Simulated assay, not measured.
Amino acid sequence: MSEGTIRVVLADDQPLVRAGLRVLMADTAGIEVVGEAGTGAEAVALAGEVRPDVVVMDIRMPGMDGIEATRAIKARKDTAGVRVLVLTTFDDDAHVYGALRAGASGFLVKDMALDDILGAVRVVAAGDGLIAPSVTRRLIEEFAARPEPAPAPGPPPVNGVTDREREVLTLVGRGLTNAEIAAELYITVATVKAHVARLFTKLGARDRVHLVITAYESGLVAPPR
């Protein structure tokens, strides 16, 4: 294995899905599949054994599902740094929020283009969250359907941030890219990146996905009704 290679574990109960992903990644420089798991429990054990950079995790697996497996991987001290990229289908939307809350750094849709799948693995391995505006809208819709009370009236409970950082967080929550936020606020992209970096630190966020969730849960972004 060469320096800088992204080490990946594939977790899916369908051997054909794993085989397809393995072939795709085997032909790609800089990505190496170091293990496969057919259940969530196997994925957790394998993550502890081989310490991959990324686990591509299916949601629907027998026994321990992908959400519980993600939570278990992120909860363990020896695997807390492993990034989880959830593999889902369009009818899994009800589980996407749970997967992100469990610690996933983003998700793949099973019918994505091959180049997009490889790009997603690289993005997550680099420490970024993968959440496109279209994905964000679906996440909002699912969040809105959850049987939870609406946030109480008053200022959103996001403490220790400046007014500008709050504006940036709101726009991140709406799914805007850094370039779009810069245009919206009439500032440079570099300034947006600096604000996002400070938000990571101040809010203890793992990545951009976590910032999106924080924006919804704090009431900065109102789900559509």
Rank of each mutant, 00 (worst) to 15 (best):
S218E: 11
T162D: 09
L10V: 03
G4F: 07
V8F: 02
A179M: 10
A150I: 10
A132S: 12
K193G: 12
A145N: 09
K77Y: 10
L108M: 06
D115G: 11
L87M: 08
I67H: 04
V8K: 01
F107R: 06
D207E: 10
A37H: 05
A99M: 12
V34S: 00
A41G: 13
I117C: 03
A190I: 15
V189D: 07
K193W: 08
L171D: 04
V54R: 02
S134M: 12
N178V: 14
A47F: 03
A132W: 14
V161E: 06
A72C: 07
D27N: 14
A43S: 06
P149H: 06
F143T: 05
P62V: 01
G48N: 01
G106I: 01
A179C: 09
V209E: 04
L46A: 05
Y216S: 00
V96Q: 11
L10P: 00
V158K: 08
I6F: 00
Y216P: 03
G129V: 03
L176Q: 08
T79E: 13
V55H: 02
E36I: 10
V34N: 02
L203G: 04
V123G: 04
E148F: 14
A47P: 06
V158D: 01
I117F: 01
E36K: 12
G35N: 09
I131S: 00
T89D: 13
T177M: 09
I31M: 07
S134N: 14
R7Q: 14
V33W: 06
R76M: 15
V192F: 05
P147Q: 09
F143W: 15
A190Y: 09
R174S: 01
G40M: 04
V123C: 10
D93C: 07
T201A: 15
A19S: 13
V192D: 00
A152R: 15
